[in-house]
Write a protein that binds this DNA or RNA. Structure first.
Lengths: 209, 209
DNA sequence: TGTACATCAGTGAACGCGCGTTCACTGATGTAC
DNA sequence: TGTACATCAGTGAACGCGCGTTCACTGATGTAC
């Protein structure tokens, strides 16, 4: 056990560094080219070292995804601070898209569900919590409920509205990621996201325009 | 050259069969586990045979994706037949989601942009046409324009509305694919899609409600 | 119609690659008395 | 404070695997005269 957290031992806090390096590697080469060996190499450590900290590759990826989800939830929480439900919903949407654009490969991995499906059929129970983006979705449900109660949004089943909101930002996220190199110029993206959210807000709003 | 198209030669129309088998394989194992060798094996043909018909794996995948896009456009065209713009837009959205759910792996591959990015940097010009889902997006632009001109939809820049529409159905498609095994029960999906589209249509509609 | 030749569409062996994971090991760290 | 021992976190060699792709080949098909 280390007393000195600031200056780790010569053989330091490998687990944390593995996660950090794996995240960088993921970002730069994508999931399908992410290899345990490359991560080890990047850290100057033997290729078997990671297996002291993660049972297998899948477990490393799972840890990455979990970190991703909590980071996303953080983005959301920050975005909605001190805003009316209408503004908050919009801000959270933009935060979602921003997260996706800042960490495109991580974002895709988070939602690819390719981690659990391959092997751990037995562990399915945990997915509902960790993998449906539960925390972030709960934020969303909260805002929507508030918005309806306070008369900002039209009366509709909360889950339906939340799901619709999730859909549009999810779509925006994917389109922005996949088409940033193609077709759509980078600077147009923000405007397109904004106007798509406007359309959505109008669809959900209690006011008549 | 074959005169008898119905009964191909003993060594038949391999190219077409490769595409068909690759599509099945893609559907059942996903892109990252799709291998040329597996396709060859499935067809009972030597593992080098495919390379007579496709320069490399990338070219096979590209062909698959192209077929996918034209099939998607077909879904769209069928859906909108003889409907008002409002109904058509909604029907096309449902068709889009249906396509995605029927061919989830193909759909993901189509939009993953992992095909071109790896190698063919020189071929980027063609992407605008084939890969931005051009044909399908044009269908969409057409409907939106019509809808605005005929007073069904609120006045707004056509591209913006079309992009917003695309976003929501794209998001619905991805969420439905990735969460069909998780959380959301299969039969709830259709209802959620429908209600998300309702919200969107309200946001875009010219009528005040 | 028959022969000679070119082309086409397969075969099968081989290449080199990077990967995930295991295993016996070693040296450093932490703990008990 | 010092010694004996257990545990921990690395090493490096090796395993077996499936892959994409190449290459010299062969046999069937198509073409010209």
């Amino acid at each position: 056990m280390k007393k000195d957290d600031t200056t780790p031992y010569h053989h330091g806090n490998l687990r944390a560094e593995l996660l950090k390096t794996a995240a960088q590697e993921l970002q730069s080469v994508g999931v399908e080219k992410l290899s345990m060996r490359a991560v080890s190499r990047a850290l100057g450590v033997s290729q078997s070292a990671p297996f002291r900290h993660f049972k297998n590759k899948n477990e490393l990826l799972t840890a990455l995804v979990e970190k991703g989800f909590s980071q996303l939830a953080q983005y959301q929480r920050r975005a909605k601070k001190d805003l009316t439900p209408t503004e908050a919903l919009s801000a959270m949407g933009i935060a979602y898209v921003n997260f996706a654009c800042t960490h495109p490969e991580l974002f895709k991995l988070m939602f690819s569900s390719q981690i659990y499906c391959e092997q751990n059929d037995g562990l399915s129970e945990s997915k509902g919590e960790a993998f449906s983006g539960g925390e972030a979705f709960n934020e969303l449900l909260g805002i929507v409920e508030e918005g309806i109660q306070q008369g900002y949004f039209q009366e509709r089943p909360v889950q339906e509205v939340a799901f619709a909101a999730w859909s549009i930002v999810h779509g925006l996220a994917y389109l922005t990621i996949d088409y940033s190199r193609i077709g759509i110029p980078k600077d147009a993206t923000h405007h397109l996201v904004q106007s798509a959210l406007d359309v959505f807000m109008r669809g959900v709003s209690a006011e008549e325009k």
